[in-house]
């Protein structure tokens, strides 16, 4: 039983697992003693176990953990008088169906070109219902849903995210102005997918946490919630990073500012756009800095929003 006849991987794997009957096992072992190629195969099999064992198993991302807590809290609430989690009322949930919380159905996500072109007021307003925001103390319009978006990060399907993105158009104008003013001025692309409610009092963004602290100013913060992959990050990013401008709440904006400072400190480049999304399923900030503005070349850093560490090697991209 030497020489010609070799055994296939499956037989060898069964041998290793002790699944062969005694007689067959003995035959295979005798063969292995003299056959190098089969010995190699056996080593490959052992390597599979080793490689699988060595593969790291990451901890559950914070977003998933929060989402599960929420689902369980909802479950507890739904059982009347049964087991319930003691919790403060979830206002986002309670207010969800009020008119100002309900995003209208929008056919496609807002694109940079669309948002930018609306800042010159000549944009035609298609049949677009005026969108409502909440008027804050200083008279600015704050999109009512931004908090909701953040909280439901993981649960939100792409279409809903796009719709929600449209709701926050009020601030989008202000945020985009920043980009246009400091940008290449050539934001001319794409027909306006969504017209702006022109009567909306021009919101002024007064709550820029990065100002006055010596942080770099003049970047837009968006929250597309998009799950980026490497192939996507090699495509033109202007299309990706622009769609959903919002400013997060204070703590988040601070966190973003911290990471922006960290990234620009590492790269010595000017950051001009940040998107809060995911990278291969993990929460991430996609930070774009100008490498060569004329050529629309950007450096893309993908960092962990919590510790600002790079999640992958910084890469060149196109805007």
């Amino acid at each position: 039983m030497t020489g010609d006849t070799h055994y296939d991987l499956e037989i060898l794997a069964e041998l290793a697992e002790g699944l062969l009957d005694a007689a067959t096992a003995r035959r295979v072992r005798e063969h292995l003693a003299v056959c190098d190629p089969c010995g190699e195969l056996l080593a490959d099999l052992a390597a599979v176990r080793e490689v699988l064992a060595a593969t790291p198993t990451p901890a559950m991302p914070m977003g998933v953990a929060l989402r599960i807590d929420k689902a369980l809290a909802a479950e507890a609430e739904s059982r009347r008088g049964g087991v319930g989690l003691a919790e403060t009322p979830d206002w986002n949930e309670l207010m969800r169906d009020t008119p100002w919380e309900r995003p209208a159905v929008v056919p496609e996500p807002v694109r940079l070109g669309a948002v930018a072109s609306s800042s010159d007021s000549s944009s035609d307003e298609a049949a677009e219902p005026a969108r409502l925001g909440v008027v804050s103390d200083d008279g600015t319009i704050v999109p009512a849903t931004s908090r909701t978006i953040r909280r439901r990060r993981w649960a939100m399907p792409a279409v809903a995210a796009a719709a929600a993105a449209a709701v926050v158009v009020g601030t989008a104008v202000a945020a985009t102005n920043l980009l246009v003013a400091g940008g290449d001025g050539g934001a001319s692309v794409a027909p306006p997918a969504i017209a702006q409610p022109t009567q909306t009092p021009q919101p002024t963004v007064t709550t820029q946490p990065q100002r006055g602290k010596g942080y770099p100013v003049g970047y837009t913060v968006t929250s597309s919630d998009h799950n980026y992959s490497d192939p996507e990050l090699r495509t033109r990013l202007g299309d990706f990073l622009a769609p959903a401008p919002i400013l997060g709440d204070f703590s988040e904006a601070d966190q973003v500012a911290k990471c922006v400072t960290a990234v620009s400190g590492r790269s010595k480049l000017r950051v001009f756009a940040v998107d809060q999304g995911q990278y291969n399923g993990q929460e991430a900030l996609v930070v774009a800095s100008w490498k060569q503005r004329a050529a629309k070349k950007v450096r893309i850093d993908v960092v962990d929003p919590f510790n600002c560490k790079n999640l992958r090697k910084p890469a060149l991209g196109r805007w």
Binding site: D8, L9, E10, L12, A13, A16, L41, A43, D44, L45, A47, V48, R49, E50, V51, L52, A53, A54, T55, P56, T57, P58, A59
Partner: peptide
């Protein structure tokens, strides 16, 4: 394992493999 062996065998001789920490 028999199906994975041909695909993963090139990782076999990574000296540092066993140092990778995991849960």
């Amino acid at each position: 394992r028999a199906k994975l062996a041909p695909i993963l065998s090139h990782l076999r001789n990574r000296s540092d493999l066993n140092r990778v920490s995991s849960a």
